[in-house]
Design a protein around this nucleic acid. Structure first.
Length: 281
DNA sequence: CAAAGCTCCTGACCGC
DNA sequence: TGCGGTCAGGAGCTTT
């Protein structure tokens, strides 16, 4: 399930083949993912050149020389795969794109594969993107300086929702999903159901440090490969082997001196994993 | 307005 | 072995 480190891994993997490349021919194998593909999607991509690839939150932003920005969200199981131009597409491939790399050397193919189809793609002008409510309401990037302990403390002090729900909502800080929120809350010693406004300034500082550290380590590891995530080369990330709590129900807490056990509990339809010894409300 | 609930989808997994 | 039921989960939308 792609969160910030997985999308960052995809962006880095796509940059070498796609930056400066010409998009020669787009084929859609169905009319929609989570939403319909944009009207004229293929014709607006065909013949364009890629000017830049960026990531914002969990969105991949590919700027084209037509001024359009091709926005992709990978949802739960979306992934891009770069492969040979003649290679047949696999099951659940919903889009294929033949491209000519900037450096020459023939052509390649980019496939978008998404079994559950929770992903989606948009094609927007910069104004449309920046003015879109969903985009404008994204919180700061967690790895930016704007995301500080003081910022988090000020943002939390009026919130009654649980810290877990707040961190996952994208408006306070973006890019986090269930896995990295569970891991960060463990690292900071905070209970997932603790109300936002009960978290003090020092704990906010610790939490910010934990979030930045975990995301950085996960990016270095090429993300976490659970569910279907893989890099564009097909290579798997390996951060899932470093989880402290996620999917470790019943395991002993790894924190030295803690004799707690990892519990799994569902709140708000999402599973939380936390240590019953060192993560107190 | 804030917060909680619902919804989309299909592969994996479980119990019988 | 096969079948049906349940679950996972991002984020926009709806309801409270």
């Amino acid at each position: 399930m792609p969160e910030l480190p997985e999308v960052e891994t995809v962006k880095r993997g796509l940059t070498a083949p796609l930056l400066g490349a010409s998009l020669d021919h787009v084929t859609l194998f169905r009319p929609n993912l989570r939403y319909d593909f944009p009207k004229d999607f293929a014709s607006r991509l065909n013949g364009r050149r890629v000017l830049s690839l960026e990531r914002r939150a969990k969105y991949l932003l590919i700027a084209l020389d037509s001024q359009d920005i091709w926005v992709t969200h990978l949802g739960m199981t979306g992934r891009f795969k770069v492969h040979g131009a003649d290679e047949a597409h696999t099951k659940h491939a919903h889009m294929a794109l033949h491209f000519s790399p900037k450096a020459g050397g023939g052509s390649g193919q980019l496939s978008y594969i998404d079994p559950r189809r929770f992903g989606f793609m948009l094609l927007l002008s910069p104004d449309e993107l920046y003015q879109a409510t969903w985009y404008a309401s994204l919180g700061p990037e967690p790895l930016s300086e704007a995301f500080s302990g003081d910022y988090l403390y000020e943002a939390l002090k009026t919130k009654t929702s649980s810290i877990k729900a707040l961190l996952m909502a994208q408006g306070l800080v973006c890019g986090l999903g269930n896995i990295y929120v569970c891991e960060a809350l463990f690292a900071a010693g905070l209970h997932p159901e603790a109300s936002g406004k009960t978290i003090g300034r020092e704990a906010c500082h610790d939490l910010v440090v934990a979030i930045k550290a975990i995301l950085s380590r996960a990016i270095e590891a090429g993300g976490s490969s659970i569910s279907d995530f893989a890099a564009t080369s097909g290579e798997l990330g390996y951060f899932q082997h470093q989880f402290s709590v996620y999917d470790r129900k019943g395991c002993a807490c790894i924190r030295s001196g803690c004799h707690g056990v990892i519990e799994r509990r569902v709140h708000q339809g999402r599973s939380s994993f936390y240590c019953n010894g060192c993560q107190k409300i």
